[in-house]
Each structure stands twice: as C-alpha cells, then as structure tokens.
C-alpha cells in the first residue's frame, strides 16, 4: 500500500472534499504518484473497500454517494494530466467506445478505464452512463470503433448487457467487446455474455494494447 493512502482515506472519512481533492492533485503534481497509481491504488480502493459503520447504517447510501462524489471530482480534475501524458504516448490508431448500459448509473469505473485507454494510446470515447441499447448500436455504427467496452456494476444489468453484446456481435461482428465491473463477479455472469476480453482491473487495458500493437 502506498504510504500516502492512509492520509487520503482519513480526509475522505472526514468527507472533506476540498482537502481530499488538493491532497490527490498535489500527489500528482509532486510526482509522488503516477496517474495509474492514483487511479488503482487510491481512487479504486477508496470506493471498493468503503465499509459503513454499524451506527451509520441508516445513512450508508448517503455516505457512499458523498464519497463517490469526491472521487468523481478528483477523477475529472486529473484530465489535464491525462492530456499531458497522452501527448507523449505513441498512438495505436485504434478506437474504443466506453459506456455503461441503461439503468446502470455507476460510472466511476468506466471513466477510469477511459483514462487508461487514453494512456495506453487508444482513441477513446466515453459515451456515458445509462446508455440505451439502441443508442449504443447507433454509436457503434457512427463511430466505427475497433472495441466497445461495457462496465456493469448492478448484476440485474447483465440482462440488458447480454442484449447489447448479442446485438453488437450480430450487427458488427468485427467489433471486439470488452466487459468488466462488479456484476461479472456473480456466478455464471461472464460465461453467458458474448465478449472478447474480460477486464478484471483497469490496468488490463495495457495487455489489450500490447496485443493490438
């Protein structure tokens, strides 16, 4: 664990947005951490390891959403750093569209993955959360990506994800499908979805990049 993580979590526990954002950005500016480290070792675990205290059970969702809001702000604030790094990276000339399916509002993972694709040299487009199936198929038609990456958290949304991936495979068989997210940890979920790549962590993007180089 990075030695600065504890300090970061303390600020998040206090729900001090200003200090949390400044702390994270300062780590980047002073090059104490890389963008990848910030995403994988700070932001992702701050969300996935969030545990609600017993006495706060009734306000758990509120607290989780507050934390998510702070993480999202930090994530958006790192975009200039992504631009700066991207200028130094050799382009792969491969397009990827990233999204979450309809009714899926958890999008932090998808945004992090979007940044990772950019850092790996892809031309990456995040088209948003809660994206209806037909709009996804239209986006694939219009944007003509090489890859579509779908992030799913709520396991019920595997149902619509199957419709989406079946639709993409039927209409655009050359487009490679990448899936990832908490929903695929449920029994049987990944086996029943058409996909070419299953990402268990955001840094798996670099393995895909290596393959297409």
């Amino acid at each position: 664990m990075n030695s600065n993580y504890e300090g970061f979590i303390k600020l998040l526990d206090l729900e001090d947005k200003d200090k949390s954002v400044n702390y994270a950005l300062e780590l980047l500016k002073s090059k104490k951490v890389t963008l990848e480290e910030l995403y994988l070792d700070f932001l992702a675990p701050a969300l996935t390891t969030f545990v609600c205290q017993e006495k706060e059970k009734e306000i758990c969702i509120w607290k989780e959403h507050t934390r998510t809001s702070i993480i999202r702000t930090i994530l958006e604030c790192t975009y200039p750093f992504v631009i700066e790094r991207r200028n130094e990276i050799k382009k792969l000339h491969k397009k990827v569209v990233i999204l979450t399916p309809s009714e899926e509002y958890h999008e932090i993972g998808a945004i992090i993955v979007n940044h990772f694709f950019m850092l790996a040299g892809f031309e990456s487009q995040y088209i948003g959360a809660n994206t209806p199936k037909n709009d996804i198929l239209m986006a694939v038609k219009a944007y003509q990506p090489d890859f579509v990456a779908i992030s799913v958290t709520n396991y019920y949304n595997i149902v619509i994800t199957k419709q989406i991936t079946d639709g993409i495979k039927k209409n655009y068989p050359n487009v490679k499908i990448i899936v990832g997210g908490q929903a695929f940890l449920q029994h049987g979920a990944i086996d029943q979805i058409s996909h070419d790549y299953y990402m268990q962590k955001a840094s798996d993007v670099f393995m895909i990049a290596k393959e297409v180089k």
Partner: peptide
C-alpha cells in the same frame, strides 16, 4: 435485482441464469 438469482426466459428457453456470488 434484489433476488439472489435471476433466470431470464426467452422464446421458451433459458437465456440467462445468474446467481449472486
């Protein structure tokens, strides 16, 4: 979405069968 298992039936066949880990 709150059930422990979701079975989807489509055209008289099981289209999807997932269980919460």
């Amino acid at each position: 979405e709150k059930a422990d298992r979701i079975v989807e039936i489509k055209d008289g066949r099981i289209n999807l069968d997932i269980t919460k880990a």
